[in-house]
Write a protein that binds this DNA or RNA. Structure first.
Length: 324
DNA sequence: TGCCAGGCGGGGT
DNA sequence: ACCCCGCATGGC
C-alpha cells in the first residue's frame, strides 16, 4: 500500500513552458494508466512510487512512507518533460517537410520518460515488429506478470515487471509473444541485476559511450540502444533510425536511404531522437506503405480513429489478447 | 496460405 | 565496408 507523500500543482509550470498535459499524458500510454482525464505515472519501479497526474495539472505522489518526496517530485517533473525546453526543437520542426504540421498543432507535447530497464524492454519489443505488435507485447507483459500496487485512496495500479520478476519467470516472455526477443530481454534483466548496466552511471556518460555500453548486451543494437536512451534519459543526440524512418526521410528529403542518418543528424542535431519519436506520433506509427501514402498526400498529423500512439490509451482493455 | 513488420547477429564477400 | 539470411510471432 502506497501513501500520499506529496501533492502539487503543475499547471503554472506547464503553462510557463507551453506544455499541454493532455497531449503529454496520452501519447504512447495504455488505457489502464490514462483515462483521458488523469494518468498514473510510474516514478519508481522498485520502491515503487506512482504519481497521479490530472490533465489540469493537479498531481499527487504515492510512495512508501518515509520516501524522499522532493526527489520524487523532481522525478515527476523530469519524466513529464517539464525540465526541458523544446523551443529550438519546435523551431526546427516548423521548417521541416515531415514535422511542420506537428510543430503547429502539437507544440505542447513532451515525451514522457520511464526508467532505463522498461525503456530497453520497450525498445526491444519494437524490433522487427509493427507498432501494434510491439505495444501488444508490452501490454501482455504487464498483464501476465500481474504486478499491482494500491494507492491508499485511489485503488490499484498495474506495474511493469522488474528485472527480477522476469528472471524468476522467464517463460512468461514467450507467453507475451516476444518470440526470439525474449532472450534479449533476459540478457538485459541479467545485466541490470548484476550491475553490468549501471542505469545511474549511464546518465553521466557521453551519449556515444552510453550507446556502446548498452550495445554490449547481445540483441541490443544501435536502434534499440538509442531509443532507450531517448525514452529513459531524454538523450536525443543519436537518432534510432530504422527502415521506417529511413524510407520516409529518404522520400521527404529527396536523398538516398544510405544518406539518411547523416542528413537526419545534420538537420536535427541534438534533437535527432526526439524528431524520430515525434514522427511516429505524427504518422500514427502506421506501417510503412501506409505511412508513405500519408506523406505523399500531406497527411502529417495524428488522425482520429487511426489507433496510433496518440490513441493507444483509447483501445479497449484486452485489445492485445489473442482470440481463442 | 505465405509474406512481411519501426532489428539483430553471424555468416559470407 | 558492405550484403544476406534466419530468427518467433502476429496480422492480414
Amino acid at each position: 500500500m502506497l501513501k500520499l507523500v506529496a501533492g502539487l500543482d503543475l499547471s503554472r509550470e506547464a503553462a510557463a513552458k507551453g506544455v499541454d498535459l493532455f497531449k503529454t499524458l496520452c501519447v504512447y500510454n495504455f488505457g489502464f494508466w490514462f483515462n483521458g482525464r488523469e494518468a498514473r505515472v510510474v516514478l519508481d519501479l522498485e520502491l515503487p512510487a506512482v504519481a497521479l497526474v490530472s490533465v489540469d495539472g493537479a498531481a499527487r505522489i504515492y510512495a512508501p512512507p518515509g520516501s524522499d518526496a522532493p526527489e520524487l517530485e523532481e522525478r515527476l517533473l523530469f519524466s513529464l518533460g517539464l525540465r526541458e525546453s523544446l523551443e529550438s526543437f519546435y523551431a526546427m520542426a516548423a521548417a521541416d517537410p515531415l514535422l511542420s504540421a506537428f510543430a503547429r498543432e502539437w507544440r505542447g507535447w513532451r515525451l514522457r520518460s520511464c526508467d532505463p530497464w522498461w525503456a530497453l524492454v520497450t525498445a526491444v519489443c519494437q524490433q522487427n515488429a509493427s507498432f501494434r505488435q510491439g505495444w501488444g507485447m508490452l501490454a501482455k507483459l504487464i498483464a501476465l506478470y500481474g504486478r499491482m500496487v494500491e494507492l491508499e485512496d485511489r485503488g490499484w495500479v498495474p506495474l511493469p515487471p522488474t528485472p527480477r520478476d522476469v528472471l524468476a519467470e522467464p517463460g512468461k516472455l514467450r507467453m507475451a509473444g516476444l518470440g526470439y526477443r525474449s532472450e534479449t530481454v533476459l540478457r538485459v534483466a541479467e545485466a541490470m541485476e548484476s550491475g553490468t548496466l549501471p542505469s545511474g552511471a549511464l546518465a553521466a556518460e557521453p551519449v556515444e559511450r552510453a550507446e556502446a555500453i548498452l550495445r554490449r548486451v547481445k540483441g541490443v543494437g544501435s536502434y534499440t540502444a538509442r531509443l532507450a536512451l531517448a525514452l529513459a534519459l531524454r538523450r536525443y543526440e543519436l537518432p534510432p533510425i530504422d527502415r521506417w524512418v529511413k524510407a520516409l526521410a529518404a522520400k521527404a528529403y529527396g536523398i538516398e536511404e544510405k544518406a539518411v542518418e547523416a542528413e537526419w543528424r545534420k538537420r536535427w542535431g541534438n534533437w535527432s531522437a526526439l524528431a524520430v519519436i515525434a514522427l511516429t506520433v505524427a504518422l500514427d506509427a502506421a506501417p510503412l506503405s501506409k505511412a508513405i501514402a500519408r506523406l505523399e498526400s500531406g497527411r502529417l498529423l495524428p488522425e482520429p480513429g487511426a489507433g496510433g500512439p496518440a490513441e493507444l490509451w483509447r483501445l479497449p482493455l484486452g485489445w492485445f489478447a489473442k482470440p481463442f
